[in-house]
């Protein structure tokens, strides 16, 4: 599904070059559940941005679904992103003036999906994610957990094969975190490839595979036989 070869990413900060990623080789199969762990500054967000096609690597090759997407033009990347990748962010990133239903429909609006099909899909997602009675609420009228559920519904609206979640529970309390994780894992169970970036080891431990990033390099560890909880 995803194959990264020799991926590097440098940033110019002031006069210095910061090496966020120093050569990542990684293959992720379809339907995998991967946690990317590491302290802040280890390069995990940079890696996620490259996998999510939000950022270009400075060097290396990225193959998605058998297609080389390293050197795609911005607009072509946008199209791949729209169809293949669903994003879940730490800060939800809902558009404040839009209702839950409108936020969920946004990727389909951008893709030009017909309104009738769109409504059908939004209704289904709202129902499936327990948001049916929140459809016409704006983000400021929703709890954090509800916001993140809306964000996940939005990520799923185009049924992308890959879900990329950056600290999805970073802004939630323990109880709602649990809900959100359960929801994400149900997507994985339904066949999506799930990539979660977190610094929370207990959350990382639930994944079927853990990648530990340290100073821009991978230290992959095998899964312990029994998860922590």
């Amino acid at each position: 599904m995803i194959r990264l070869t020799g991926i590097q990413r440098h940033f110019q900060v002031g006069g210095e070059t910061v090496h966020a990623l120093r050569g990542i080789d990684l293959a992720i199969g379809a339907g995998e559940y991967i946690a990317i762990l590491g302290p802040s500054g280890s390069g995990k967000s940079s890696l996620l941005n490259i996998i999510g096609l939000l950022d270009h690597p400075s060097a290396g090759q990225y193959e998605l679904d058998g297609r080389d997407v390293t050197a795609l033009a911005d607009d072509e990347q946008a199209r791949v992103r729209r169809e293949k990748i669903g994003f879940v962010f730490q800060f939800f990133h809902l558009v404040p003036r839009l209702t839950a239903a409108e936020n969920i429909a946004l990727p389909m609006v951008l893709a030009g999906v017909e309104p009738s099909r769109r409504e059908e899909r939004v209704a289904w997602l709202l129902e499936a994610y327990g948001l049916a009675n929140r459809a016409h609420h704006r983000p400021d009228q929703l709890s954090g957990g509800q916001c993140q559920r809306v964000a996940i519904a939005r990520a799923m609206s185009m049924s992308p094969p890959v879900i990329v979640a950056d600290e999805p529970t970073g802004n939630l309390d323990r109880h709602t975190s649990q809900e959100v994780i359960t929801l994400l894992e149900s997507l994985h169970a339904a066949g999506s490839t799930l990539i979660v970036v977190t610094h929370d080891p207990s959350l990382g431990a639930r994944a079927t595979r853990q990648l530990h990033l340290d100073d821009g390099l991978i230290a992959e560890r095998p899964l312990p036989d029994s998860p922590a909880d």
Partner: peptide, 16 residues
């Protein structure tokens, strides 16, 4: 800016 970033993440092209 955040909204624009989001729209891009959701697959909006520069033209859009």
């Amino acid at each position: 800016r955040r909204e624009i970033g989001l729209l891009k993440a959701l697959g909006a092209t520069s033209g859009q």
